[in-house]
Computed example of a mutant assay.
Amino acid sequence: MSCRTHIPPNGDVVSLILFGGMGLLALAGIPVLDRRARRRLGDGEWATVRAQTSVVPFLALIEGRAHLRMDRDFWLWTGLGLAFYVWFLLQGHRLLIGVDPMAWL
């Protein structure tokens, strides 16, 4: 995600190395975290967890391997996440990083 959102506007080699490296690190971390979880949970429980999840967002839901529970906690955390995202997009990025991502508007 960081590659797609930062390299085109910045367009320099430093951004390519920094954000591309972060993207590669995130992708390389998936099998490492899977291995740790398998070791911690054991083969039987790991197989159960893996059957209900996916690395690809929403794939387990689409395939029917997982079910979305829209309870009170779901709406609470969804609302808080969206509120933080909107704050970061409109003010937080400028305050914390110094660049306004909405300046092009």
Rank of each mutant, 00 (worst) to 15 (best):
E63D: 15
W104H: 13
R69K: 14
A66Y: 03
A37R: 08
W104P: 00
W46G: 05
A103I: 04
G23P: 00
Q91P: 00
P57I: 08
D43V: 02
G29A: 08
M22Y: 04
L59T: 05
L95K: 09
V13T: 09
P31E: 07
L27H: 02
L33N: 09
R40A: 15
A28G: 04
R35W: 08
L41Y: 01
V99D: 13
W77G: 10
L80V: 13
L18F: 05
M1W: 09
V32A: 10
I62E: 04
M70P: 02
I62F: 06
R94L: 10
T53G: 07
G23N: 03
L16V: 05
D34R: 00
L95W: 12
T48V: 12
F84V: 13
F84L: 15
A37H: 01
T78H: 08
R69F: 04
I97H: 14
H67L: 02
M1L: 09
A26E: 08
V14S: 07
I7V: 15
L76H: 07
R4N: 15
V86G: 06
V99Y: 10
T5Q: 12
Q52V: 04
L89H: 11
R39P: 00
A28V: 01
W75I: 07
L25G: 08
V13K: 01
Q91M: 13
L41A: 07
L82N: 13
A37F: 01
I17E: 08
D34I: 00
D12A: 01
L33R: 04
R39G: 04
L95V: 12
Q52P: 03
M22D: 01
P101C: 08
V32T: 12
L59K: 13
I17N: 04
S15H: 03
R72H: 14
H6S: 10
D73S: 15
L59M: 11
L18M: 04
P9S: 10
D12P: 02
V55M: 05
A37T: 12
D100L: 02
P31C: 03
R39V: 07
L82E: 08
L16F: 06
A60Y: 03
L16Q: 07
A83M: 02
V99M: 09
R38F: 01
Y85W: 05
A26D: 07
P101N: 06
R35Q: 14
Q91W: 14
L80A: 14
G11V: 03
T5G: 14
A37W: 01
V32L: 12
P8E: 11
L33H: 06
D73M: 08
H93V: 06
I62N: 02
I97K: 05
F88K: 06
G20H: 00
F74Q: 10
I62L: 11
L89M: 13
M102A: 15
V56E: 08
P101E: 09
S54Y: 00
R72I: 10
A26M: 08
C3D: 12
W104L: 12
L41M: 08
S2E: 13
L25H: 01
D100T: 06
W77P: 10
S15P: 00
H67C: 06
M22N: 03
M70S: 13
L33M: 15
H67N: 06
G11H: 02
H6Y: 13
D34H: 01
D100G: 07
W104G: 14
W104S: 15
